[in-house]
Structure formats: structure tokens, C-alpha cells
Write a protein that binds this DNA or RNA. Structure first.
Lengths: 101, 101
DNA sequence: CGCCTGTCTTGACGTCTGTCGAATCAAACG
DNA sequence: CGTTTGATTCGACAGACGTCAAGACAGGCG
């Protein structure tokens, strides 16, 4: 069973996604979005769960968006976030492959 | 099937490990260590694979060490690094759980 | 012992990050 | 319309990060 290592280019592509997960607030945000019953959740339900200000939450959500981990759309007054599974699956697979049995 | 979200404390604990993976050089270092044929690899084999200086590689290796992702020991002149599977498995599992089917 | 080679630490530097308050934009509602 | 409420953007700031050159440390070998 061959385990070949990442190319430099693959590392450059994947690292920003891990980086986006590398902040406690973002990790918890992602987790809340992922476990939302309807598959999506309103920012108004996310913000009060944290000690930080609303602009800060907005900044973290944008970071997750730009990393390709979540997607958002506005419906009327509220903005809803949902998981975008593609990149997250890549990360999970990579970690599983790199981890020795 | 219940998917409950991370506690703040779990997020604080896990985020640093993701953060450590959030740099292209570190990600590739980890990958090279993980795919080393003998399960471990000498720093002298890692350093020449990158464009950055040896101190920079040393700094990144320490970061991976402090994140609990790798372990090192010196044998004579050379220092060998190997994967420490525990935390990596946690990360992989977390990502798999958070990713919708 | 004294030197050489491999690795790590230190000091310094520019840049990026996380945070906030204030200002702005978007949409509903009088 | 003007106002209110939710969400984002802007401007600013302290702190952390990634990088390197220079120095320190550790082990082998004359």
C-alpha cells in the first residue's frame, strides 16, 4: 500500500482550508452550521452564542466562506449559512490517509 | 441521527491542531513524515525539499510538535520525526462527522 | 582536545490576524 | 419616505506569524 506525499501545489491549495479551521470561534461556528437541524442556520442564531461582537462573527463567517467551507444567502432580513461539503470531505480524506493505522 | 455541535472548550482544544496544518510548508512536512517508508524521516531529508531556510523548517517542525501532531528524537547527529496518530485521528473523525452525507 | 556538520534558538523584521467601535448597506414596517 | 433591525464593511490597533541571518548546542571525528 503506497502512501505518497502531497505535492507542494496540493499543499498550497489545501492549507488555507485548514487555516480557516484553525480558530476556535470559526471551528465552533462551522460545527453549529453543520449540525443545524434544517441544514442551515441564521446568523442571528449564531451571534448570541459567542462572547465576541457581531462584526467579529461576520468576519469569521466571511473567512469560512472564502475558504470554501460554507455558503450563505440572504432571504429577506436574515442571512442563512450552510455547509459546503466538497472541501471538507477532501480534508477529512487527507487526514485519514496521512494517519497511520 | 443526532449531530451535536462542539462545545466552546472542545473548539479551543482542537483549533490549534488545525491551525498547525494551516501552512503549506507544514502541511507538506507532515505529509512527508506520514509517508516515510520506515515510519520516520530525518530532518536532513526534509530540509532540501523546500525553498526556505533550515531555521524556518526547524520552526515549522517545532510548531507541528507543539500541536501534538508529530514527535521527534535525536539519534546521534540526526533528528528523526514521526507521526503521532492520536490528534490526527480526532481531526479526521471530527471533519467526517461535520460533513453532511 | 579542536574542528566540522547537522540542528535548534535568538533577535529582528515586515506582514497578516482577530478584535472592536463607528459607519454603511438591505430589507421590512410604520 | 424615515426609522428600526439585522448583517456587513471600514479604520484602527495590539498581538501573533513566517522568514532570515547570526549565533549557540550537540555529536562525531581527526
Amino acid at each position: 500500500m503506497v502512501r505518497h506525499s502531497l505535492t507542494a501545489q496540493a499543499a498550497v491549495t489545501l492549507a488555507p482550508a485548514f487555516k480557516a479551521l484553525g480558530d476556535p470561534v470559526r471551528l465552533q461556528l462551522l460545527s453549529m452550521i453543520a449540525s443545524a437541524p434544517e441544514g442551515e442556520i441564521c446568523v442571528c442564531d449564531l451571534t448570541p452564542a459567542f462572547e465576541v461582537s457581531a462584526p467579529t462573527i461576520s468576519y469569521h463567517l466571511r473567512t469560512l466562506r472564502e475558504a470554501g467551507l460554507v455558503d450563505a444567502d440572504r432571504r429577506g432580513t436574515w442571512v442563512y449559512y450552510r455547509i459546503r461539503p466538497g472541501v471538507m470531505r477532501q480534508l477529512a480524506t487527507l487526514l485519514a490517509v496521512e494517519t497511520p493505522a
